[in-house]
């Protein structure tokens, strides 16, 4: 089997307080290859969390078909299936009265092939906090503990829901290293995030959800036709900044270099950032 996740025509509606149906997921298709890091992006209310929670087996669906690790979470024997899946939820604060090592030792008992506790503590960088209680961990340390709990059962597939919200830049970088090392060990990862640079740094492929639909799904380099967008060339010449949007940046630069002797002052060549593409794609949503 080459796909960890296959989704076809997934739909889900909720009733709001007044009893009216709200379509949160309006028929999406999705494939996540084994060993891939796949990022789901989108504004709040786009249907990301609904989609992920259906894939995690927390919620039922209204329509469409689903295969997660070869099984349908709504049909399968959940304990056996969950033995192969790791879930990192948003903002938890349980286990306040237990230490890191106590929590992990306890949860390891749920799985048929748990990872070594000390190895997991080292992998998430909580060695110095192993005896600290949950209530005494910082936000970043707490998140690391959540990830440690997500991987304690050696999952084949790991769900990460906004894993680095509230991290400082340094903590975020070292967290990315942790996620990359999980990929190297062969874990498939489906993550949601609000940080575009995070998706770009980690994900093999990115899907953007908006209004319950997948707006686009591609590698970070190609998302939204980013690779075909005009390239912005900026330079400084005779006392002023010049800018040119071009489809043929190489040719443009060659001409520029021929015209200007020596170094071209303040030269930059940029493609639109993932964030710019993203904002274009969800434009008008906010």
């Amino acid at each position: 089997m080459s796909h960890a996740i296959v989704v076809r025509g997934l739909t889900k509606s909720y009733r709001n307080g007044k009893g009216a149906a709200i379509e949160a997921v309006k028929g999406i298709d999705l494939e996540v290859a084994q060993g891939e890091i796949f990022a789901l992006l989108g504004p709040n209310g786009a249907g990301k969390t609904s989609t992920i929670e259906i894939l995690e087996g927390y919620r039922g669906r209204d329509g469409g078909s689903l295969s997660v690790l070869g099984e349908d979470p709504a049909q399968t024997h959940l304990p056996a299936w969950r033995n192969r899946v790791g879930i990192v939820l948003q903002s938890t604060k349980d286990g306040a009265d237990l230490s890191v090592v106590e929590i992990l030792t306890h949860f390891a008992q749920y799985y048929s092939r748990p990872r070594d506790i000390d190895e997991v503590i080292a992998a998430v960088g909580l060695e110095e906090k192993r005896n600290a209680r949950g209530e005494h961990l910082s936000g970043g340390q707490r998140r690391r503990l959540d990830v440690a709990l997500g991987i304690i059962g050696s999952p084949e597939l790991l769900f990460l829901d906004e894993p680095t919200t509230g991290f400082d830049p340094e903590a975020r970088r070292s967290f990315w290293e942790l996620i990359r090392s999980l990929r190297e060990s062969g874990t498939t990862i489906l993550m949601s995030t609000h940080y575009l640079e995070e998706a770009e740094a980690l994900a093999d492929r990115v899907a953007i959800m908006n209004h319950g639909l997948i707006a686009d799904c591609a590698t970070p380099e190609k998302l939204g036709g980013r690779d075909r967008e005009k390239v912005n060339v900026r330079w400084h010449e005779s006392g002023a900044i010049h800018q040119e949007l071009t489809d043929t940046p190489t040719e443009f630069l060659r001409n520029l270099a021929n015209r200007i002797p020596g170094e071209i002052s303040e030269l930059t060549v940029t493609r639109p950032t993932l964030e710019e593409i993203y904002l274009q794609m969800i434009g008008g949503n906010e």
């Binding site: 939820l89 604060k93 949860f107 749920y110």
Partner: peptide, 17 residues
């Protein structure tokens, strides 16, 4: 309290029956 702090949701995501 455990429903609020995520204990229950976390447990439901593990193989624990």
């Amino acid at each position: 309290m455990e429903r609020d702090d995520g204990t229950l949701k976390r447990l439901r995501g593990t193989p624990a029956p």
